[in-house]
Computed example of a mutant assay.
Amino acid sequence: MRTELVSEPGDPARPNEDFAGVLLPASGRGGTVVVLDGVTPPRGGTGCLHPVPWFTARLGGALTELTVSRPDMPLAEALTRAIGRTAADHADTCDLSHPRTPQATVVLARWQSDTVEYLVLSDSVLLVEAPDGTVTPVLDDRLDRLPRTALADEAAVDALLRNREGGFFTAAADPAVAARAVTGTLPRSAVRSLAALTDGATRWVEKFGEGDWTQCLAVVRKEGAGALVERVRELERADTERVFLRRSKTHDDATVVWAEL
């Protein structure tokens, strides 16, 4: 088994809002990948006393404990319990009903002797490579299906689309959101490797169009996770006219976790 993890902040002067972990249980019979992409809040209030890294650290920590200590627990249930546990940590001090309460996208993958389970919530991506080299992206594409015009006004997004039917979902304070995640189980024999990427890294495919998902995974396999992030940074720096970036932040937190099973 080989694993690699790279997580780079978009701005060295700001905390990285991503969370990433590769977990290898003491039994030696499997492993887990946990990747969260904290949602950067707007300049206005969020109803919460805590910054996004506080939230992702606690949600990621809860997922780490639950997915490893309870290999029998489905990933959606682990996410349900982790969100509930994290919400309880600040329910007495913060307004968790606020639409911009701290929240994150989620990618989970767990392999055991015979199976590989996965869960994806919102716009981070899990790439699954088969033994023959075929790469299948696991995507929660609800955000991509929304018209760009519908996402132009932050207040309207928060009121009508964020964690609402017909919109998109993230892990925030409502444990029920776990049921909205994209989940599945594959035979272990059908999986050669896995790669989990936050949207700061998927820019190479989704924003700059430098290649498809198969080519993206090939970069990680051949050159390393750090090489993919550096390629994205070079493209961001070169886009001085913002042809590709448009209204997006120039650099986003970028995380890549690769595991060859």
Results as ranks from 00 to 15, higher is better:
205 V>E: 02
217 L>K: 00
259 A>S: 08
88 A>L: 13
86 T>K: 05
96 L>H: 04
110 R>I: 01
208 F>S: 04
35 V>F: 09
47 G>E: 09
25 P>V: 14
81 R>H: 13
215 Q>C: 12
13 A>P: 05
259 A>G: 06
201 A>D: 07
101 T>G: 08
120 V>K: 03
2 R>A: 11
91 A>V: 14
88 A>C: 12
207 K>P: 00
45 G>H: 10
29 R>F: 14
211 G>V: 01
81 R>S: 13
233 R>D: 02
51 P>E: 15
25 P>H: 12
214 T>H: 11
31 G>A: 12
50 H>K: 13
157 V>I: 06
120 V>C: 09
119 L>C: 07
68 V>M: 10
170 T>P: 04
91 A>Y: 08
206 E>R: 07
77 E>C: 10
4 E>Y: 00
258 W>V: 03
257 V>C: 06
119 L>I: 07
204 W>R: 02
165 E>Q: 11
29 R>E: 15
13 A>W: 11
89 D>Y: 10
50 H>V: 15
214 T>R: 10
29 R>M: 14
108 L>N: 02
194 L>I: 01
167 G>R: 01
33 V>S: 10
170 T>C: 12
183 T>V: 09
202 T>W: 00
197 L>N: 00
53 P>H: 11
147 P>Y: 09
259 A>C: 14
243 V>Q: 14
243 V>S: 14
67 T>H: 06
9 P>I: 05
250 T>D: 13
40 T>Y: 12
46 T>F: 10
244 F>G: 01
72 D>W: 11
146 L>M: 05
223 E>R: 15
1 M>Y: 10
154 E>D: 13
248 S>C: 13
129 E>N: 04
142 R>V: 00
192 R>Y: 07
240 T>V: 15
121 L>H: 01
121 L>E: 03
116 V>S: 06
58 R>F: 10
102 P>L: 01
187 P>H: 02
33 V>T: 12
192 R>A: 06
125 V>Y: 01
22 V>S: 09
136 T>Y: 03
140 D>T: 02
68 V>P: 03
125 V>W: 04
116 V>Q: 05
136 T>D: 10
65 E>F: 14
9 P>S: 09
201 A>I: 00
85 R>S: 15
81 R>Y: 13
152 A>H: 09
174 D>K: 06
70 R>D: 13
137 P>G: 01
177 V>Y: 03
210 E>A: 15
173 A>Y: 04
86 T>V: 07
151 L>G: 05
186 L>D: 02
209 G>S: 03
14 R>A: 14
85 R>Y: 12
188 R>S: 07
141 D>E: 15
158 D>Y: 08
63 L>T: 07
38 G>C: 13
87 A>G: 14
216 C>Q: 09
191 V>F: 05
71 P>Q: 09
256 V>Q: 01
236 E>G: 02
133 G>Q: 06
50 H>N: 15
242 R>L: 08
77 E>N: 12
93 T>K: 08
187 P>F: 04
169 F>A: 07
202 T>L: 07
228 L>Q: 00
6 V>T: 09
118 Y>W: 09
208 F>W: 00
